[in-house]
Simulated scan of single mutants.
Amino acid sequence: MGSPAVSQNGHPAACRAREVLIRIGDKWSMYVISQLGERTLRFTELKRGIDGISQRMLTVTLRGLERDGIVSRTVYPVVPPRVEYALTPMGRTLLESVGALVNWAEDHLGEIQGSRTAYDTRD
């Protein structure tokens, strides 16, 4: 059997893929990707559209997604500065997968809550 694939920095490719999956699989990243799949948004529009996310967590999430090439950030030289976020072409390739996961979670909320209640009340 051959040796495992190695990335450019010498780490096994599976470890690098895990880093990306951790970023994309983060609950806030999924909501950001889902929101930006509809249209380009400003920071405040994103924050308003993602229930429960703090300003700091949205900033951290957007920076990570931008660093990974999933989200682009455009700053317009106006006063006050206007910043917009959009999915990159690579980020758009995630929409179907992320959308399916978000829809699955929403479709099964009742069942999941019932399972949690049953689990938490058993002896």
Rank of each mutant, 00 (worst) to 15 (best):
R92Y: 03
S3N: 09
G114A: 14
L58C: 05
Q55L: 01
W28I: 10
I22F: 04
Q113W: 15
G52E: 04
Y31L: 07
T61Y: 06
V75E: 13
V6A: 02
V75G: 04
D51W: 07
Y85H: 11
E106Y: 09
I24G: 02
R73V: 13
A14R: 14
S3M: 05
I112D: 03
A5R: 10
R67A: 12
W104D: 04
M30D: 00
G37H: 03
S72Y: 01
R92S: 11
T88L: 02
V71Q: 05
T61P: 00
W104C: 01
K27M: 03
V32K: 04
I70V: 15
M57P: 00
Y85L: 04
V71P: 01
V32W: 12
T121P: 00
T117L: 15
M57H: 12
E111L: 12
Q55A: 07
E106I: 10
Y76W: 08
E19I: 01
I33Y: 14
E96T: 06
G49W: 04
W28S: 05
E111A: 10
S34R: 08
S97A: 09
R18G: 05
G69K: 02
T88N: 04
D51L: 08
I70T: 12
S3A: 03
S34H: 15
L36K: 04
L41K: 13
S7G: 15
H108A: 00
L41N: 07
V78S: 14
A13F: 14
V102G: 01
I22H: 06
E111V: 11
L65A: 05
P80H: 09
E38K: 03
G110S: 12
R23I: 15
A13W: 09
I24R: 06
T59Q: 08
A105V: 13
D68M: 02
C15A: 09
